[in-house]
Every structure is written in structure tokens, then in C-alpha cells.
Write a protein that binds this DNA or RNA. Structure first.
Lengths: 210, 210, 210, 210
DNA sequence: CGATAAGCGAGACGGTACGTCAAGTCTTATA
DNA sequence: TATAAGACTTGACGTACCGTCTCGCTTATCG
């Protein structure tokens, strides 16, 4: 809040580090639900007050640690649409894995009540890798690799959500071949030639009749 | 556990109902994180003991309520691949929405520690709608609507995860046109003709070089 | 509050004892200002909750201990006015000393904010010995030992306050000769014969002039 | 301690005043127990450091303020024993009331731990009005108004303690007629003629027998 | 029909963490 | 050196649920 423009003892930045380090360790050892501010304080050799002065609560503290873990996400630029997409998604998976899939989902669940917090979470944790995928798809589009009228947001969600789903819900790893297959499926479709157009007509008839 | 083979006063089944009803109300009013067994007991006019005798903890209690909310999920059977898929996914979305998206994700997060519990959660909450999608895709495959070598599990995950992502993470609604577009994209692909094959070759060259 | 007429697990009366014992010890070792509920709980081998369930706060807890220390105060009845008075005051002094003069005054000071609490304090701690003095004086009056028109309340206050003052304020002991002298002074006056009447007239003239 | 003999920035004496003023206000608004140094500092527009440099703690700070409130106590000299005594005691009551009876007793209680502090308190707060009473009594004695062998200290305590008791303990006002009656009682005694001597003999017999 | 066994409401119990608060000390930059 | 601002440690506060327990009572079935 107060940047302490002038006057007052400056914050001891070694405390920031010590607290985040302890948070990180406890996150790995106990997981988010068992992570207590009191533990963090004890382990960091720091008072609770010093923590609460920096972060208003557990969520923000862990969020800060996740942010630190994420570092800088740079979208790949090989010039090859499929390669870039695969690369983006692998990056995505790496980021989530590094943050700790369970931590991410537990934290998210713990942020649902406060809209402000939710937004921060999304911006901090989900947006960066998501943006990488989007940029990659936009480049593909500009390069003329995509059909006209393709809904980019939907495409991003489709790919991103797969990684999320596997890692956060099923706690299953996402392997490179799977990512490749998923990208291939989305790019090329999975229906035999001619089927989509046929069923498309049927849908319209169906919904028109309903 | 004990079916009360012999002896003892039989359980009052009206208590089961009262407790689940109160759980349901409090879930809607306060959300899962704020739901306390003590509140449930008070509201249901029942003792904590009676609750703990039936469910070992909060998670199992809420799980039971979600199970009750889900009811019976029946996969659609119109004979049209795309219609059935869309229908399955809408069903999926309805189920999650009815259960309460926030509740579902919070509960899931709260189940991560106990593997047994996790499995129960997956079987109870995620599997049924997922199975509906899988059945639909299997029927499509058997009907010859899908290309050879399509990874059904991946396809199910791709579609299912989209709904999850939108509802559980972004707390955004999933509209029918979007579902339709997503199904269309997966079935037909989004790449311009010829692109997939071309980049596919490039991928192999790329990964061969790496 | 709830006497637990029916239902519920009965309170463990050994806890009451353990808590008051620990309170007593800590009162002696550290004094009232340093007495912390958490210490009491720890030393008594009891949870904080168990304490707060019985007494709403530190003040009430200590008050309960003082009450226990006081026991039963019985006014003396030798039939001799002066002896009874001296005896009453010595009893008074013993009671306050046994409770711990510093504890009494610190507790009183800590009760000033809450009127309810203050009243309880007065009734519990100050009234009983005070009542003994009053009873003794009433018996003296009924016996015809006192002049007509003597203000008994004032007389009680005069004697009681001396003990309070010495013990609670000056932390000086009150010896038997002093008590005797004070009782003698109050009973017989300290002015030389004729002086009181003379100055009494002067007072009236003085206040009439002012 | 350091009178700032030489060197450095001189102390800003307006700070002393501002701090004591704020202390005074907060004492009236919240009472001693709720008076926090941080509040005082904030209200005075002064840093905590500046306060702690002048007074080692809360007790000393408040003590300083009480001292300021007391001002100069001058014993009355009308030449009439009873008038002077009444006047002294009223002065006594006024002083305590002005300081704030609750503040005085709370502060006293908060000084019990530190003997040094206690002594300062006694000297500062209790001695001056007490001295006035003593001087008055000494003048009465020298004037020949008192019987031989009267214990002056005991007489002072008897009168002073009554005021203390009423104001600090019972939080009851001390009215002028009451003071007059108390002075009258002490000077003239309350026993019917002949009673004191009779019971006095009884006491000696009693204590001799016991 | 009485013994046995469980269900049940009430609420005590030991835990554990919460987030807040004030005390008193220390650090920095500025006057 | 004094000052303002404010970081810092310490330690207790009173609250809230957790999941377990004990008690006295009720309600069934079994022998």
C-alpha cells in the first residue's frame, strides 16, 4: 500500500524472501490446505505481524509465491503453427506443474468468495500461459493457416482447458504425444471427410424442429 | 457400514433427509468453504453426533448432497453424432451448474489430500456426465463417423474439459452456440485444407532435429 | 448460566478445581496484571475453551478464585462492642491479606469499565467483611452503646476504609494495636473535652458567612 | 536524564505540552486502561519515539499528566481546627475528582509491580493532599485542641482513607455534610459517655484472658 | 417381557488457527 | 542530537470449528 516514499524504517526485504521461501517449502511439504500463517512465520523466523503487513491473507501470500514461481513466460516463435502450439501448451503444463497443480486448484477454490481476489488469481496464474497460446494462434491466423471465421477464444479455451483438466482435476500428467494429438485433432478435426457437413445440416433441421 | 443387522434402535431416516436439506441450503447461502457441520446440525435440528454417525466428515456429507442433486444422467440417443454430442455436453453443463460450480471445485480441492476420497469424488461427480460423452462418441465411432485411430479418451477430455474450464475456473456460462462451435471444431478441425499435413511434416523434422 | 439441568455431557468439576488452583498459583507468582488465560490453561492442563466456557473473562475467573479464598465470613459475637469491632476489623484485614491486597486492587481497577462486573466485585469481595462490621455496630446500637443519631454507614466506612487504605494503597500491614487505637478514637473521639462543641459553633458561623 | 547540556537539536517543548494534552483528553474519553501510547502519539501528531524519549512508559506519562492536573495544593489556615480539617478534606476530594478517580486507582494498580514507580506515585499523587491534612492536625495539636497521646498518623489515615475509599472504591461522591460528620465523629467520638472507658476495661480483661 | 443394543440430543472437551492489538525497540532519512 | 514515520518482535487476546467424548434418554429387536 504505502510505498514509504519518505520517512519510516524501510521494510526488510530479506523478510519478504524468507517468508516466501518458507511458504514454498510448506506448500510442498503440507500442501495449501494445511499451510498456516503461524507455521510460515515460525519457520521463516519472522513474526505474524510482519507477514500480515505485507499480505492481507493466506491467499495473497500463496499467490505471491506462485507468481514468483512462474517467472517470465515467453511465447515460442518458431514460425511453425503446430510446433508453436505444442510448445505453448507444454510450457503451460510446465508452469502449472511447477506451481503445484494441487496448490493451484486449492488456492483457486479458496478465492471464489472474493471477486477481487479471483480476478487477481486469474490474471496472475491463468492469464500468462493462456496469452502465450493466444498469441501463437493469432500468428497462425495472420500467417493464413486458419480457416476464416475461426473463434480464437474458443480455440484457446479448448486447448488450455485440456491441460487444466488433466493437471488440476485428474492429476494425470500431460505427455507430449497427447498434446501433439490434441493440437492435431483441433487443427484437423476428427470427423471423417464429409461427416461434419452432413451432421451440420441435421443439427439445423433438429434445432429447427425443436 | 453397519446395516443394523440386529438389535438397537434403527436410524431415523428423516434425519438423513433433514441434514441433506440443510446442507443444500447452506451450500447455496454460504458456499462450501463456510459450511460448518455445526451450522448444518443446528439448522437441521439434529445433533452433530447424528451427522458424524452417517458421514465421516464434511466432504462426504457434501458429496452425498451432490450425488442427490445429480440424480440420474442418461446419455442422449438421437442417432445424429453432432446432435448427441452437443446434447451430452449441455447435459454436462447443466449437471455442474445444478451442483454449483463453486461448490464442486471447492470440494474437489478439499478432497485432494485423501486419495480414497478423491476417487469417490471422481466416480460420483465427474464420471457420470463424462461417461455420457464417451458413450456418444463410441456410438459415433461404431457408426463409422470418426476417422480411424482417433483417441477417444483424448476427445472426451477435450470436450469435457472445455465445460469444466468455463464453469469451474472462469465461472462463465457455457452457451449452446459455443458448445456447437466447439463440437464442430473438434469434429472438423480448424486448419485450412492442407495445412495440417504440411505442418505435421515440419513437426517431425523439428522434433527429429531437437 | 446453563446449570445443565438435563442433557449434555456434564462439566468435569475437576477442571473447575484445576483451573482455580492454577489461577491461584499464578496470581501469587506473577500477580494479576501478568496473569494470562493462556498460562492458566497450560498450567491446569486444560484447554482455553474449557475456561471461557465457565468464566467469560479474566476478571470473572479471578473473582471466582477470590470468592473461593474468602470462604465464609462470620461476624464475632462476644457481647463487648469494642472487642467485636476490633475482631471484625482484624477479620477484615485477614480476608484482604489472604486474597492478596495487590490482586484485589488490580482486579478492582480492571472492573471499573463494566458496571455489572463492578457490582459483582463489590458484592463478592468488599461486602462480606463490611457487613460483619455493620452487624457489630448495629448490635452496639441496639445495646445502647452508641449516641443517638450516629450515622452507621459513615462509621462503617470510616473503619473499613482505614483497613483498605493501609492494605490496598500503602501496602502496609495493619497491626492489632492500630486497629484498637482506631476503634478507640472513633468511639471516644480525639478532641479534648469541650473543643468539639466550640468549633462546631465556629463551623456554623464560618459556613453561614461563606 | 540527559538535560541536553550541549550539542544536538534541542527538545521541542511544544511536544511535551501536546503529548500531555492528548493524554489528558484520551484519559477522559477512554480511561486509563484503554489509553494506548500509539493513540496518544497519533492524536498529538507526534512520534512514539518522542514520547518514549521523555517518559519511560505509560505509567510515567499518565503520572506526569496527573501531576500537572494537581497543581499546587495549599493547606487552609483559618485558625479553626474543625473548619480547617473539613476544608482540607474537601480539597482532598476535589483533587482526586479532578484527576479522575478511576484513572487514579487504575494507575495505582498498574504501578504495584515496580516499587520505584509506586513510591513516585505515592509521593506525587497521595502525599500532597495527605500532607495538608497532617499540617492541619499538627496545628490543632499545637493549639492544644487535641487530647494528649493522639496518634496523628492514624488520625490522618482515618480521615484520608475515608475520602479515598468513597471516591476510588465505591465511586460514590463525598458530600460536605458527610465530611463534616466524619470529622465530628473522629473529634468527638461516637460512643455514649462512659462507654469507652467501660469497654476499654473489658478489652483488657478479654485480651488478658485470651 | 425384560435384556440388549443402537440411535439420539445436548453439550463438554482438547485442539489448532484465526486475525487483531498494543507494547516497547530499532532503523532510516531529514532537520 | 531530535524528530517523524513506520518496521519489527513479542505475546496474548477472544472466537470459531474441528472431531471425539460422555451422559441420560428413547426405541427397537432378541432371547
Amino acid at each position: 500500500m504505502t510505498t514509504g516514499l519518505r520517512g519510516g524504517r524501510p521494510r526488510d526485504s530479506s523478510i519478504d524472501r524468507a517468508v516466501l521461501d518458507s511458504t514454498s517449502e510448506l506448500l510442498d511439504e503440507l500442501g495449501y490446505p494445511e499451510l498456516a500463517i503461524e507455521h510460515v512465520a515460525r519457520r521463516a523466523g519472522v513474526s505474524k505481524t510482519a507477514i500480515y503487513r505485507r499480505w492481507p491473507g493466506r491467499q495473497q501470500l500463496v499467490l505471491a509465491e506462485l507468481q514468483r514461481r512462474m517467472g517470465r513466460v515467453v511465447p515460442p516463435q518458431t514460425g511453425c503453427t503446430r510446433c508453436d502450439l505444442v510448445e505453448s501448451l507444454e510450457l503451460f503444463a510446465r508452469v502449472l506443474t511447477c506451481m503445484g497443480a494441487e496448490t493451484v486448484s486449492a488456492l483457486l477454490a479458496d478465492c471464489t468468495d472474493d471477486p477481487e481476489l479471483r480476478r487477481t488469481f486469474m490474471t496472475t496464474v491463468f492469464e500468462p500461459p493462456r496469452a502465450a497460446v493466444r498469441v501463437t494462434l493469432e500468428q497462425a491466423r495472420d500467417r493464413g493457416d486458419l480457416r476464416d471465421g475461426v473463434d480464437l477464444t474458443l480455440a484457446v479455451d479448448t486447448l488450455a482447458s485440456l491441460v487444466h483438466y488433466r493437471l488440476l482435476f485428474r492429476h494425470a500428467p500431460v505427455t507430449e504425444p497427447e498434446i501433439d494429438a490434441a493440437v492435431g485433432a483441433l487443427l484437423g478435426g476428427i470427423a471423417r471427410d464429409g461427416v461434419v457437413e452432413a451432421v451440420s445440416a441435421a443439427v439445423h433441421a433438429h434445432s429447427g424442429a425443436g
